[in-house]
Write a protein that binds this DNA or RNA. Structure first.
Length: 589
DNA sequence: GCCGTTTTCGGCCCGACTGTTTTCAGTCG
């Protein structure tokens, strides 16, 4: 049973309570949902935490849920949940994945039409809706029947509640929409907000806030967006669209003098907003997108900037990437938020694949070393590290490999002479083989300035063996960086299991860095593990893993991961000047 | 059922929008 299954179980229990008696179980419902969120977001598997006796370190898991989970891992079921879910037909639960379906609506329909089979319920419901039988039900009508047909069709086309796009993809959708919005004379300011502004690795909906003196006109203009598929809703202050790719975009509008509270409200996260409002309530204030309401006299103060909004609560402004309710409010109250890294702090990139003919077993870059250097100069970098994949082991003898690397070094020496304004490192991305050895012999390794080591094969090892393998690879004296440490590919495959405590500990003791890889499908190390690692004192590098010059622009996404992990400049090696970096690579300059 | 820099008991964010109603329930963020 993995985290996703457990979260689903908790949500189903919450839904069952909502169906049976929502008022009576109101706070249990919230508690179950909170715990489900925490488990779904956790990088550690709940089962592992259970084995280590650390289940209660998940916020939202208290004595009762802990006991339930313990029972689940021991026996495979939770007796209490079986009681809670008793009497709720199993066919209710699959409907909860469909947008616009909540527990009550799903239950009413399943109950009335006596749907028994969870595997066919969606199809069964579609047939009933098509025959017009829903419109006559009490509490339903023609419009809601049409909506049900709509959302089921969309669901079958792959539009589910929890399908998320990678960050740069969402960014592109937002850019395109912003360009459209800015053409309207009524739009004074327009910003992407929500998870996009907080720079999450994957984005559900694209949220946009607009400041305007004419909300009606802006909303009307918005719903006429040329790429719209359908208007989901439209009111006086907000609207949602479904666009042709199946993504949701939400727009919220306020006059300019309320833009600060609007930004704050719509940026979230939900957990941050809830915690912030609880904090404000204790001081006698109630928060909303309209401003800050004084509970004593009922007056509402407006804020045109977010900074003023936070300041008036006695808090310093909190960077959006930190707004996840993981301690930021307490620190903001003490004015002790760390100064997190900025993309301008980056002075180089160690993970660059040029098209130098290195005969690797993986992919080669598309552009020449000189092209990559030119791009690095345009980014005002001080140094660049070339790190193509190691020459394929199966197709070369070790002498041949060494010859290729020496040839590459000659090329690099020439480039150093031709490019005085930038320094160059001769690195290599080397596979850690299944047996823990690196795919390069020592003699070849010695002609390099350093190695990035990474896993590219045999992913399905158990945690213990994989940890052993990674540590063996990383212990090579030339190995300085563990590249894309989890191996995850967003929306494609989860990362492999590692004992992170051991990895962090090893990295600190042996002066190794963990990479934050900026590649959109990777964003690896993930932000939550970055946050963990930095508490141990681990050092990082942020790289782009570029295979073409334009990929070097992706650095901002890696920096976003670092910001979400609360890293400061001092935690990241490639914010340092060249001399300090050479010291770290153990090179004499 | 969870949680604590006023609390180990007594609270628990705040609002938008839709559809079916004639004041509200359900869903969403």
């Amino acid at each position: 049973m993995n985290n996703k299954d457990i979260a689903r179980l908790l949500r189903n229990a919450a839904a069952s309570y909502a169906i049976k008696d929502e008022k009576k179980h109101y706070f249990q419902i919230i508690a179950y949902q909170k715990a489900a969120d925490a488990i779904e977001d956790s990088t550690a598997e709940a089962k592992d935490l259970y084995k280590e006796g650390k289940l209660d370190q998940l916020s939202g898991v208290g004595p009762s849920i802990k006991q339930h989970l313990t029972e689940l891992f021991k026996t495979g079921k939770i007796t209490h949940f079986e009681t809670v879910m008793g009497g709720v037909p199993p066919a209710v639960f699959p409907l909860l994945d469909i947008p616009s379906f909540g527990p009550k609506k799903a239950f009413k329909l399943v109950e009335h039409f006596k749907f028994k089979n969870p595997d066919t319920v969606i199809d069964d419901l579609k047939k009933v809706a098509g025959s017009g039988k829903i419109a006559t039900l009490e509490g339903f009508g023609k419009k809601s029947e049409e909506l049900i047909l709509h959302v089921i069709t969309e669901y079958e086309d792959g539009i589910k509640k929890n399908v998320r796009m990678v960050l740069p993809f969402a960014n592109e959708i937002a850019e395109k929409l912003l360009a459209y919005l800015k053409k309207s004379p009524d739009v004074m300011e327009a910003f992407p907000l929500g998870s996009l502004r907080r720079m999450l690795s994957t984005i559900g909906d694209v949220d946009i806030a607009v400041a305007t003196k004419n909300p009606e006109a802006v909303l009307e203009y918005f719903v006429n967006y040329p790429y719209k598929e359908r208007v989901i809703e439209k009111g006086p202050a907000s609207s949602s669209l479904l666009i042709s790719g199946g993504q949701h975009i939400d727009l919220m509008v306020q006059p300019p003098d309320r833009f600060g509270s609007l930004l704050q409200h719509f940026t979230g996260s939900k957990a941050h907003n809830i915690a912030l409002r609880e904090y404000a309530l204790k001081k006698g204030f109630s928060l909303s997108e309209y401003g800050i309401k004084n509970m004593k006299d009922g007056t509402v103060k407006k804020y045109n900037s977010e900074e003023k909004f936070y300041n008036s609560l006695g808090l310093s402004w909190i960077p959006p990437e930190m707004r996840e309710n993981t301690g930021e409010i307490v620190l903001a109250a003490k004015n002790e938020l760390p100064k997190i890294v900025d993309v301008k702090d980056m002075k180089g990139d160690f993970h660059i694949h040029s098209n130098f003919p290195i005969e690797p077993s993986h992919d080669l870059g598309r552009n020449s070393m000189q092209d990559m250097l030119n791009k690095a100069k345009s980014l005002h970098y001080e140094y660049l590290g070339f790190s193509e994949h190691n020459p394929s082991v199966s197709k070369h003898t070790s002498q041949q490999v060494k010859a290729i690397l020496e040839k590459r070094n000659i090329k690099i020496e020439q480039l150093k002479k031709d490019n005085k304004s930038i320094r160059i490192f001769s690195l290599l991305e080397v596979d850690i083989l299944a047996n823990g050895k690196v795919a390069l012999d020592d003699e070849s390794a010695n002609v390099l300035d350093g190695m990035l080591v990474s896993i590219h094969s045999a992913f399905s090892m158990d945690k213990k063996d994989m940890t052993k393998r990674v540590l063996a690879g990383l212990s090579h004296p030339k190995a300085k960086i563990l590249s894309h440490p989890t191996g995850r590919l967003l929306n494609q495959r989860p990362g492999y299991d590692l004992n992170w405590e051991e990895i962090f500990d090893f990295a600190i003791k042996n002066n190794k860095a963990l990479e934050i890889n900026s590649w959109p499908q990777r964003l690896d190390l993930p932000d939550s593990l970055v946050r963990e690692a930095v508490k141990y004192g681990v050092k990082f590098v942020i790289d782009t893993d570029s295979h073409a010059t334009e990929h070097m622009n992706l650095m901002k996404y890696g920096v976003a991961v670092a910001r979400r992990g609360w890293l400061t400049k001092g935690d990241i090696l490639n914010t340092n000047r060249y001399n300090k970096v050479t010291e770290w690579f153990n090179l004499k300059s």
